[in-house]
């Protein structure tokens, strides 16, 4: 049997995950619910005068991306592990990097859905008008979510084998996505006009560079990670 093409495997894995997710909505609902709860936590914790709210918003946005993202990434291979299908996924003739890329994109899709819900709500509750800069903030968050998926997904694969995996994963992933966090918070701050800086696009470029470096690195290493 011929091994299927790279991108068709990516598509199959992504479609399979999205379909099962849409059917059960387990991960998506928990992520969205957590995002909602976080919104209230941040709103109660930080709400103050309009100028302060505007300064707080970038941090709250990026923190909720990280926190909700952890939930999603932690569940990446949980279903396969529960059903004992992980070995089948690894042993299939499909390119493993393609499987990983499919999983990364699945996590990215989940983060996008949650952020579409959380971002307007946070802006509304902190009473910051982001309509003028919505495009660049969306782009930043998109690239940031990609960076998180790109770093978190391969680590989630390995976490399947560890004890206390659900606790260890955020401990390991958060330090590794710090560059994205710094760039995201600064970039969004510049876009909102609260942080002094030359331009927000430099930070967009920075996150993109991070995504490419760690995405390519992760895909390249994945073969080494899962083969016995």
């Amino acid at each position: 049997m011929n091994a299927p093409g790279f991108f068709s495997v990516v598509g199959v894995v992504l479609a399979k995950d999205l379909r099962t997710e849409l059917r059960s909505k387990q991960t998506l609902m928990t992520m969205a619910m957590f995002g909602l709860v976080l919104t209230f936590v941040f709103a109660f914790g930080f709400v103050a005068d309009p100028a302060t709210n505007k300064k707080v918003l970038p941090g709250a946005l990026w923190a909720s991306l990280l926190f909700t993202g952890t939930l999603g990434v932690g569940r990446t291979f949980a279903r396969e592990a529960e059903l004992g299908a992980f070995a089948a996924l690894v042993l299939s003739p499909a390119d493993r990097a393609a499987v990983l890329l499919g999983k990364m994109l699945g996590n990215l899709a989940m983060s996008i859905v949650v952020m579409v819900l959380v971002v307007p709500l946070l802006a509304l509750m902190l009473r910051v008008d982001i309509t003028a800069t919505a495009a660049i903030i969306a782009l930043q968050l998109l690239l940031g979510a990609l960076g998180f998926a790109v770093v978190g997904t391969p680590l989630a694969v390995m976490a399947v084998n560890a004890r206390f995996a659900e606790v260890l994963l955020p401990i390991v992933v958060f330090p590794l996505v710090t560059p994205v966090l710094i760039a995201g918070v600064k970039g969004t701050g510049i876009a909102l006009g609260t942080t002094i800086g030359e331009d927000a696009w430099g930070w967009v470029q920075f996150i993109a560079a991070f995504d490419v470096a760690f995405g390519v690195g992760g895909l390249f290493l994945f073969e080494r990670m899962v083969t016995e």
């Binding site: 399947v160 084998n161 004890r163 760690f214 992760g218």
Partner: peptide
């Protein structure tokens, strides 16, 4: 605390590899 199995060693190795460029 993650255990001493093969999988944890690989997990740690990925962390070691990702940490440096980070």
């Amino acid at each position: 605390y993650g255990g001493s199995g093969e999988g944890v060693k690989r997990f740690a190795a990925i962390l070691g590899v990702f940490g440096a460029p980070n």
